[in-house]
């Protein structure tokens, strides 16, 4: 069965690179431009992993994570933050909220792939 990934980011160029990468890795890729769209998608799909930006309009990454953590059906879904916020306090905050991984921008595509694969297999 194909692994599913939900990419949540408001930067279309970044999303484009990630989409291309994970499709190559044979993931079923879902795209959301902010937290609101992500939650809408999560109503119908249960991805193996959510790649989540933090600073987004409307519903931000933190709120999205909380929602995922509070949803029973998503208890097996891994959440990985992918954000430009790279201060120690930010990372600590993200992991405390229950993110499985905290990756920072700018990123190496290969590294992201290996991290995600390590998480879902």
């Amino acid at each position: 069965m194909k692994k599913k990934i939900l990419i949540v980011d408001d930067e279309p160029n970044i999303v484009m690179s990630l989409e291309y990468t994970f499709k190559k890795q044979d993931f079923e890729v879902y795209i959301a431009r902010d937290g609101g769209e992500a939650l809408e998608i999560l109503k119908h799909h249960i991805p193996n992993v959510v790649l989540l930006d933090i600073m987004m309009p409307n519903v931000d990454g933190y709120q999205t994570l909380k929602h995922i953590k509070n949803t029973d059906s998503l208890k097996d879904t891994k959440v990985v933050f992918l954000t430009a916020k790279n201060k120690a306090s930010d990372i600590e905050k993200g992991l405390k909220l229950g993110a499985d991984k905290y990756l920072t921008k700018p990123f190496s595509v290969k590294k992201i792939v290996s991290e995600i694969l390590g998480l879902v297999t």
């Binding site: 930067e11 160029n13 970044i14 484009m16 690179s17 990630l18 291309y20 990468t21 600073m55 430009a84 916020k85 921008k105 700018p106 990123f107 190496s108 595509v109 290969k110």
Partner: peptide, 23 residues
């Protein structure tokens, strides 16, 4: 912080795209 974030965003885009193009 915001400036850094704003600067990082296009750089992230450039870096990812370049990497993909190369590989």
């Amino acid at each position: 912080d915001t400036v850094a974030h704003e600067l990082k965003t296009p750089i992230t885009g450039i870096r990812a795209a370049t990497e993909l193009l190369m590989d």
